[in-house]
């Protein structure tokens, strides 16, 4: 078993890149897979004055639908309004706001870092610690890849920077709600007891 890095308790809803100015919310939006849907969503955010922090789009298992994961900077009141406005888009099927504590999140990072002979070993060690991969090798540079929850990717990115980052690209988060760990029946019982 390889030794790998597990991030600490830092809440994954605070991205370390933007220290606590705004609240981040993750919206998982199921949409019809049609031309122009992304434009409609992006345009709605722009028109109503909301910022998209990150955005990831891809088809789901059913080719008729795509899932858009939007990380948005808002307070909770306008979030309600933006969710309602999103619902008005004809192509939007379903919106779930994902609570970081109740969801699994994942992000992918690729970065090209300086790695001459003296640094190369250290970079490779760091990549191994983060369960990453080296996907391209140059004379004095390496391109590396890592996936995981956003706080882990933040940490990886920060540590890589000490070697000198030439280029870096992150995908933004994708997320799904956590699965139920107990049956509904049990849950209801505990609910009543509480």
């Amino acid at each position: 078993m390889s030794i790998s890095y597990i991030p600490g308790n830092g809440s994954s809803s605070d991205l370390s890149g933007t220290p606590g100015i705004m609240h981040h919310h993750v919206l998982s939006v199921l949409v019809e897979n049609r031309a122009g849907v992304l434009a409609r969503i992006a345009q709605l955010f722009s028109r109503r004055g909301y910022n998209i922090f990150s955005l990831a789009v891809a088809p789901t298992d059913e080719s008729r639908f795509s899932r858009i994961t939007i990380v948005v900077d808002v307070d909770s009141a306008p979030l309600e309004q933006i969710t309602k406005q999103l619902h008005k888009l004809i192509n939007v099927i379903k919106i779930s706001e994902l609570d970081p504590a109740e969801s699994v999140e994942c992000e992918l990072l690729v970065a090209t870092v300086n790695a001459d002979i003296s640094a190369r070993g250290h970079v490779m060690e760091l990549v191994a610690l983060f369960d990453g991969k080296i996907i391209d090798v140059g004379v004095d540079k390496l391109t590396v890849l890592a996936t995981g929850e956003p706080s882990k990717i933040d940490d990886f990115s920060e540590l890589l920077s000490s070697f000198g980052i030439v280029e870096l690209q992150r995908t933004g988060r994708v997320a799904l709600a956590k699965l139920e760990r107990q049956s509904n029946k049990l849950k209801n019982t505990t609910g009543r007891a509480g």
């Binding site: 122009g36 434009a39 888009l89």
Partner: peptide
């Protein structure tokens, strides 16, 4: 025109 009118229509369609 579908791009231009996105924010002033309830919905629009480009027939392809």
């Amino acid at each position: 025109i579908t791009g231009i009118t996105m924010s002033v229509t309830k919905h629009n369609w480009l027939v392809t």
